[in-house]
């Protein structure tokens, strides 16, 4: 993964014509995609507008829905920049310097990817819950962490932790530190070097990582469900709000909220595709997504 193809961006040219079997396979996957992706997407919007646009707008303007939207934006607005800052710092260390325990750090960064989101939520309950390690102290000092916004932010940060770092590390490793070294020898300070050399070099990959991080942060269900407490209008994020309304038999409301999340997904997809198309070279070191 770290050894990038030097001619990435150029399309591999196939000299072999597609045999019949391959055409069948392509068709089959197109059908599967239509059934598994397009159909559910259609259902979301269909059911959201099932009782007309008036009902749709009314469910989005419902105070609990507005509160869920605000909370989701707030959580993402805290979690994503923190993870971006962390991702840049981690990628910088890993790509530009040699140190003991580098492999261990890389593995740690990847841990949230391999961990079930339920665990990512539960660890905070075990730490900060009333019966947890710091529970008594927090209660004595009237500090609310879980079943409050802070807990939602913590759970979201943990789940979306690797997105930015994982996007930047291969690219920065690929770029090496020659340009930074040149800047330093020409007399630039550390900060100037970072601001004028490193950051511009990684900006598109950074944006790409932030995009994915944000999509996951706003869409996360499992981890936030564990720490939410499901208080309506207070600790339900948009994905949790969808579940609440669905269980209230308010299907229009549930799918209206779901349509917001689906739209977020579609916007992310468009931006992501645009980035891949225009700046393939600067993202190419990482082709996992």
């Amino acid at each position: 993964m770290t050894l990038a193809n030097p001619v990435v961006g150029a399309r591999p040219v196939s000299s072999v014509r597609l045999p019949g079997l391959a055409i069948l396979l392509v068709l089959a996957s197109a059908v599967v995609m239509a059934v598994l992706v397009l159909l559910p997407l259609f259902v979301v919007f269909h059911d959201a507008f099932a009782k007309g646009i008036g009902k749709y707008l009314a469910s989005i303007r419902d105070p609990d829905a507005i509160s869920a939207i605000q909370l989701t934006l707030l959580v993402a607005a805290i979690a994503v920049p923190l993870n971006a800052a962390f991702g840049i710092a981690a990628a910088w260390c890993i790509a530009k310097f040699e140190f003991r325990g580098k492999a261990a750090l890389l593995t740690l960064i990847d841990l949230p990817f391999s961990m079930s989101p339920v665990v990512s939520g539960l660890v905070w309950v075990l730490l900060f819950g009333a019966q947890g390690w710091f529970g008594t102290w927090l209660i004595d000092h009237d500090i609310k962490i879980i079943f409050a916004t802070t807990g939602l932010v913590l759970a979201t940060i943990l789940v979306t932790f690797p997105f930015v770092a994982r996007e930047l590390i291969p690219l920065m490793q690929d770029q090496g530190s020659d340009e930074e070294a040149a800047a330093l020898t020409l007399g630039a300070g550390g900060f100037t070097t970072f601001w004028r050399i490193t950051l511009p070099n990684i900006r598109w990959a950074l944006l790409y990582g932030v995009l994915l991080c944000n999509a996951r942060a706003m869409g996360e269900f499992g981890a936030v469900s564990v720490v939410s407490g499901h208080i309506r209008g207070l600790t339900t994020t948009l994905p949790l709000h969808v579940e609440v309304l669905y269980n209230d038999y308010d299907f229009v409301g549930a799918f209206a909220a779901a349509s917001l999340l689906a739209s977020l997904g579609l916007i992310t997809l468009v931006l992501k595709t645009g980035l891949e198309w225009r700046h393939a070279g600067e993202l190419a070191a990482n082709r996992r997504h």
Partner: peptide, 20 residues
């Protein structure tokens, strides 16, 4: 007045864990 709903045992667990 805020409401929170879920399976009764799960809700009790959340209160034990500090849901206020």
């Amino acid at each position: 007045i805020k409401q929170s709903h879920g399976g009764s045992g799960k809700q009790a667990r959340a209160v034990i864990d500090g849901l206020q």
